[in-house]
Nucleic acid binder design. Sequence first.
DNA 1: AAAACAAGGTTGCATATACAACTCAATTGA
DNA 2: TCAATTGAGTTGTATATGCAACCTTGTTTT
Lengths: 145, 145
Amino acid sequence: MALKKAYPLLENTDPWICTASKLALSIRSVNVIYRKHLKKHKVTMSQLSLLMVIGKMVSVPQSEVGKMLKLEKSTITRDLKRLIDKGHIVKNGPANRPIVEITDKGAAYTEKIIPDWHAATDEALAILGNDGEQALNLVLNKLTK
Amino acid sequence: MALKKAYPLLENTDPWICTASKLALSIRSVNVIYRKHLKKHKVTMSQLSLLMVIGKMVSVPQSEVGKMLKLEKSTITRDLKRLIDKGHIVKNGPANRPIVEITDKGAAYTEKIIPDWHAATDEALAILGNDGEQALNLVLNKLTK
DNA sequence: AAAACAAGGTTGCATATACAACTCAATTGA
DNA sequence: TCAATTGAGTTGTATATGCAACCTTGTTTT
């Protein structure tokens, strides 16, 4: 079932020079580590990030959360909804410009998760090494500046 | 609506030291660039990666695709389905161990996209700089070794 | 003050992704 | 030979994500 024509760009282009692909592969590898450590808590990194960020600020405009995590506003709406349904987060203020806050239940839950999140981070850093960690910081800084 | 208790880990832990979060932020930033360039072709990076990887091999076991892209087998099944529905990819061989192949339609489509994918990559590399590119390569190598 | 605008939230829709459970075919062992 | 095992694909289910369209409210313009 050979191709009928030649496709020079397809043949001669290396898909792996792609910055997006390199980052996608990297994050899939790292997510394996984090999922392993977080599994017992039935929490994902997306949810834990929200809990930790909001928990640290205690109370913050929803719009701010989106900016900090670089997530589309509709994504924030729905990610928060899952946490609100579980009682970990509440919304206050006008429905238009809501303020989101962590609850005691959410804070206690997060507090229990953090040691495992730390273990995952340690495992990732052990693989990265000091130079790898610095390299990742450089990449992040350049891309989000 | 203050919290009733103190949560020392939550208060004292910096969420941003997280390797997964750093990579997530990085890829969200880069995806903006790639989506901008790929928008006119109505293709996503996930789909383009599949097209480029399969197109370059012409014919490859489905299981190999998953390994190369580090994607769960069920993800591959469904990502491929979308491309098969569009006529860009075909499956051959036993349903059990299928061989996936790019079609002429898929190859011609990919051929047209590659210049814009290249432009996106160039834009990303301009932001990263040479040191950023090397840093990303280091991170990828450490994490996928 | 009424109309226009802008900012931010929500909903509809589509894609991407993982895990668990199931299926199916080939290989292995008794 | 036939049963057990194993590897790989598929399907059910759930989460995560972005864009476009719409809604709501507060501000600005005329």
